[in-house]
Amino acid sequence: MSVDNTPHRGKPASDELVPSRYALRIGEIDVLVISDGVLPLPFATMATNVEPAVRTAWLDNLFLPDKFDWALNVIVVRSGGRTILVDSGLGKEFSGFPRAGQLALRLEAAGIDLADLTDVVLTHLHMDHIGGLLGDGIRERLRPDLRIHVAAAEVNFWAAPDFSRTTMPSPIPDVLRATAQRFLKEYHSLLRPFEEEHEVAAGVVVRRTGGHTPGHSVVRLASGGERLTFAGDAVFPVSFEHPEWHNGFEHDPEASVNVRIRLFRELSATRELLVATHLSFPSVGRVAVDGDAFRFVPASWDY
Rank of each mutant, 00 (worst) to 15 (best):
R227K: 14
R182A: 08
D174L: 13
I112Q: 00
V74N: 05
P65Q: 00
L64I: 00
L107S: 00
L122A: 03
V289A: 12
F194W: 07
F236D: 08
L176M: 12
L184A: 02
V18M: 12
L184M: 05
T270L: 10
A288I: 14
S35W: 00
F240S: 07
M168E: 06
R25M: 11
P42Y: 11
P98L: 03
P173N: 08
I84F: 02
V289H: 08
V54L: 14
L122Y: 06
G210S: 06
R106V: 04
F194H: 12
L184C: 03
A57E: 11
H216L: 03
A160T: 08
F294C: 02
P282Q: 05
V206M: 07
L32F: 05
V204S: 06
V77I: 09
G248E: 07
E51G: 10
M46T: 09
A159E: 12
S239V: 04
N5W: 13
E226Y: 11
R265N: 11
A159V: 13
Q102C: 00
G203T: 06
A180H: 01
I261S: 08
G80R: 03
V205T: 11
A44T: 07
V275G: 07
V200L: 04
S14P: 04
T167S: 15
F163R: 01
V287I: 14
R265L: 11
E195L: 11
R106C: 01
R141K: 11
R143C: 05
S283H: 11
G232A: 12
L105S: 11
P298I: 05
A100G: 01
M1S: 15
H216F: 01
G210C: 08
V120W: 00
V86R: 07
A288W: 10
F249Y: 14
L279T: 07
L72T: 09
E197M: 15
F294A: 06
V76A: 09
I172M: 08
W70Y: 14
F294R: 04
P253G: 02
